[in-house]
Computed example of a mutant assay.
Amino acid sequence: MSGPIDTAAMSDAALAAHLAEVAGRILLEVRASGVFPAKALGKAGDQTANQFLVHALRCARPEDGLLSEEEKDNPARLEKSRVWIVDPVDGTREYGEERADWAVHVGLAIDGEAVIGAVALPGAGRVLRTDEPQSIPAAPEKLRMVVSRTRPAAEATGVAERIDAELVPMGSAGAKAMAVILGEADIYLHSGGQYEWDSMAPVAVAAAHGLHCSRIDGSPLVYNQSDVYLPDLLICRKEHVDLVMNALRAFNAETKADA
């Protein structure tokens, strides 16, 4: 049996990818155990993966700050330049339903910027990471926009209508962002409310692949804030930014006029 991995010697990106991949395997094992009824599975998976990620990061990077969806917030992180932001299960419903569109997010924000990250898609057997960018397939003639499969935001559907984009319903935020990288979609516009852990790792990975990432008004996404609510997000190819922004302005103007 091999000895423990020296995580302290790993690069931040390699550590993020390793932890996301292992947490994904743990989650698959929790689900496959069959001991949790459907209503309890999501919570069991979240808490189990969270314990692994939190302990692993505190062991590997004890001087860094940490913010997790499943942990009580800690003001000490606000004094740190380097803060790990994790979401043990992004898409709890999809995880419980044994779909593939859920994710594990492990990311590192440095001075508020999403710099390092990995997004594991355990149901698809993939981990996308900032240090191993891949080429993004060419966009088709008819653009595709990923939206929530249960409650698509009005702004997203309004923009899709104006640019004649096909809607692609999907689960977690991480799965949606990675769909743009994988060439399964071209635009991810969200305005229905999110928190820092929902977007930080996906944004780091998407930016490393050359995609545009911002708030829907074009302003930067800033992390490790005292208020972790970060409600909107745009991830798309850079050549589509003006098209999306113009359509969004037209939708907002029309909505305001109708109010």
Rank of each mutant, 00 (worst) to 15 (best):
A38S: 14
I110Q: 13
V127N: 08
W84S: 01
G65D: 03
V119C: 00
D90W: 11
R144Y: 00
G107M: 03
V83R: 03
G45R: 11
L143S: 04
A44G: 09
E71C: 11
I110H: 09
W102L: 09
N74I: 00
S135E: 15
A23K: 06
T92D: 12
A100I: 13
E113W: 04
L128F: 10
T130F: 05
V22M: 11
L28M: 13
R99L: 15
L53S: 04
A138C: 05
L15T: 04
I85K: 05
A109H: 07
S81D: 13
E79N: 15
L15V: 07
K72T: 14
A114K: 00
T130L: 01
D90V: 00
P133Y: 03
S33D: 14
G91R: 12
L108Q: 03
A16R: 03
P122Q: 07
L108W: 01
F36L: 08
L67D: 00
D64W: 08
E29C: 06
T48A: 08
K72P: 02
G96E: 12
L28S: 13
I110E: 15
Q51L: 14
P37V: 13
Q51A: 13
A100E: 14
D111Q: 10
V127Y: 08
G42W: 11
F52S: 02
Q47W: 12
P62I: 01
P133K: 03
P75G: 03
V104Q: 09
G34Y: 09
R93E: 14
P62V: 04
T92Y: 11
E79Q: 15
F36M: 06
A49I: 04
A49Y: 12
E97R: 14
G117F: 07
V35L: 13
V22R: 15
W102E: 06
F36S: 03
V86G: 04
A103L: 04
G65T: 00
R61E: 01
F52R: 11
L15Y: 10
P37F: 07
G123K: 13
A20Y: 09
L27E: 06
A118N: 02
V54E: 14
A138K: 14
G123D: 07
G65H: 02
A17T: 05
R31D: 02
D101C: 05
L27A: 09
R31K: 10
K80E: 02
D12R: 05
V104G: 02
A23D: 08
D131F: 07
V127A: 11
K43M: 09
P75D: 14
S81H: 10
N50A: 15
L27Q: 14
F36K: 10
A60H: 04
I116T: 13
E71H: 07
E21D: 14
D131H: 07
R82A: 12
H105S: 03
K39D: 15
W84G: 00
V119Y: 07
E113C: 07
L67F: 09
I136Q: 04
S135F: 10
L128E: 03
